[in-house]
């Protein structure tokens, strides 16, 4: 489907977020390699690697998720929808619109639920790690989840609008 022009700023935002997420994977690899070298040759492990990795991985995923939805790269079985596309494209488009709506609702619930966790983590000053050794606040990760889920939810809505307009267009919607 063609992208609506109004979505282009969103496209740039998601590409940007996904770029950051991808670089973060490389940074994780670099941090772990640095830890291996430091531990083996200098006798000093880097403090907090486990905490940094476990928080980064969540960030990687949610920085990425908007772009993943945008690129239709979430795993699914396309057998039925592919078959329908030629026989009754209208029904296929309607079905896709419903799936997109459920996707948008899923991410909406995440935005709602994780916002509370974000607030609590901020007010309680929640940290990962061990006091005295290495601690890192957890709220930024929750913020990334909220941001990424918001982007993914909007993207699903844009998909939904696209499918609906296809379903109700004159030609009966050729993809």
């Amino acid at each position: 489907m063609s992208e609506a022009p109004k979505a282009s700023w969103l496209g740039r935002l998601m590409a940007g977020l996904s770029g950051i997420g991808s670089v973060l994977i490389l940074a994780m690899a670099a941090l772990i390699c640095a830890d291996i070298v430091s531990r083996s040759f200098l006798g000093k492990p880097i403090a907090g690697v486990a905490e940094m990795i476990s928080l980064s991985i969540v960030a990687v995923v949610f920085l990425q998720v908007g772009q993943t939805v945008r690129a239709h790269a979430l795993a699914r079985t396309e057998l039925l929808t592919n078959g329908l596309r030629n026989r009754s494209p209208r029904i296929e488009a309607l079905l896709q619109a419903v799936y997109a709506l459920v996707g948008a609702l899923f991410f909406a619930v995440l935005v709602y639920g994780v916002s509370f966790k974000l607030r609590d983590a901020w007010t309680a000053g929640e940290h990962a790690g061990v006091y005295g050794l290495f601690v890192v606040p957890v709220w930024p990760v929750y913020a990334v989840i909220v941001l990424g889920s918001f982007a993914a939810g909007i993207q699903f809505l844009i998909h939904m609008v696209g499918y609906l307009s296809r379903a109700f267009s004159q030609e009966g919607a050729r993809p």
Binding site: L26, A50, S54, I57, V58, V60, Y112, G113, I145
Partner: peptide, 26 residues
């Protein structure tokens, strides 16, 4: 249900062990 969802999101992949996924994929 909201708690179920948010807890799964914040807990299930947030571990050092899960780091194997992006690393081996890359």
């Amino acid at each position: 249900s909201v708690t179920l969802l948010t807890q799964a999101v914040t807990e299930s992949i947030s571990s050092y062990v899960f780091g194997v996924v992006p690393l081996f994929v890359l």
